[in-house]
């Protein structure tokens, strides 16, 4: 029995939920970034799975969207990690719970 589209989508949903868990439950800024990257990659897996399981088309649209999405995720990671370093320089911590200067 070959895997259907459903099982790929379920694996992708599990990966997305693990990324959400990392982004919501950890206090360290780098863990939050890792979680966001994991959610983006789960979305890429969905694009590729839908492309593979749809009837052949003129253009490989799903693959193209995945390539552009990977490029945008790389830009996002660079800016996010630069922000982590800037925050660390300013506050001497990367724990997001302690960044409470704007708290009323």
């Amino acid at each position: 029995m070959t895997p259907t589209l459903q099982v790929f989508l379920i694996v992708s949903a599990a990966l997305f939920s693990i990324g959400l868990l990392a982004a919501l439950s950890r206090r360290h800024a780098i863990f939050i970034l890792i979680g966001i990257e994991m959610m983006l990659t789960a979305a890429n897996l969905n694009f590729i799975a839908f492309w593979r399981f749809s009837p052949p088309a003129q253009q490989p649209v799903g693959v193209m969207i995945a390539i552009f999405s990977i490029a945008i995720a790389a830009a996002e990671a660079a800016v996010g990690l630069a922000m982590v370093i800037a925050v660390y320089r300013h506050y001497r911590t990367t724990n997001v719970d302690q960044l409470d200067q704007l708290k009323g």
């Binding site: 939920s17 439950s25 206090r27 780098i30 863990f31 001497r92 911590t93």
Partner: peptide, 22 residues
Amino acid sequence: TRRHAGKDRGFNWSGVAIAVAV
């Protein structure tokens, strides 16, 4: 950035509940 935070303490369990629900 690891001068202070080598380990990440504390785990927000409501995040786990939300992730499981999603």
